[in-house]
């Protein structure tokens, strides 16, 4: 038997109707109960609170955090930066590459060119220059591209200040 006849013969319509109704009513009752359960609990909690007169003092954690963040942000502006001979060499190399790339430049391209030219520890030196703020983010539309800081002087130190 096929088609609608088969459905009717197997009580298909009835089963489907009953099935959908049961699933819906089950979840409907459950959702009704859940929404009221929350209200009931909230009501009970309020009553409890009223009885206890419990007061919760705000923790001054936020103020502390803000203060710490401010302290972290406070950065020292260095006008003269002392670099080891090796760092000066890499710095000059990087300046040479970026002159060709043009400012603002992409750090990825800078690294690619540095690697191609076999510059020693290009990643480490890039990190160092970023830390020393010799490089800064161009910001605005050019965010993520970098420029060399103009107000910083490079001085050659005799000691190596590498890690």
């Amino acid at each position: 038997m096929y088609g609608l006849k088969a459905i009717s013969a197997a009580n298909g319509w009835l089963i489907t109707l009953a099935g959908i109704s049961i699933v819906f009513s089950g979840l409907l009752v459950l959702s009704f109960f859940i929404s009221n359960m929350e209200k009931a609990i909230r009501f009970l909690d309020k009553q409890k609170e009223r009885i206890k007169h419990a007061k919760i003092k705000p923790v001054p954690e936020l103020a502390k955090r803000k203060k710490k963040a401010k302290e972290d942000k406070r950065a020292e502006v260095t006008k003269v930066v002392w670099l080891s001979p090796e760092q000066v060499e890499v710095y000059n190399y990087y300046r040479w590459i970026t002159e060709r790339l043009g400012e603002p430049f992409s750090l990825q391209q800078l690294l690619e060119h540095a690697e191609k030219r076999g510059i020693r520890r290009p990643y480490y030196h890039l990190d160092m220059f970023l830390q020393m703020r010799l490089l800064y983010d161009a910001g605005g539309d050019q965010i993520g591209f970098y420029r060399w800081a103009r107000d910083i002087e490079i001085e050659l130190s005799e000691e190596k200040n590498e890690n």
Partner: peptide, 17 residues
């Protein structure tokens, strides 16, 4: 949103038919 979980079960019964 539970009702959406119920509604999706329509697929079971339509396929049954």
């Amino acid at each position: 949103l539970m009702l959406l979980g119920a509604a999706a079960q329509v697929g079971i019964f339509v396929t049954f038919l």
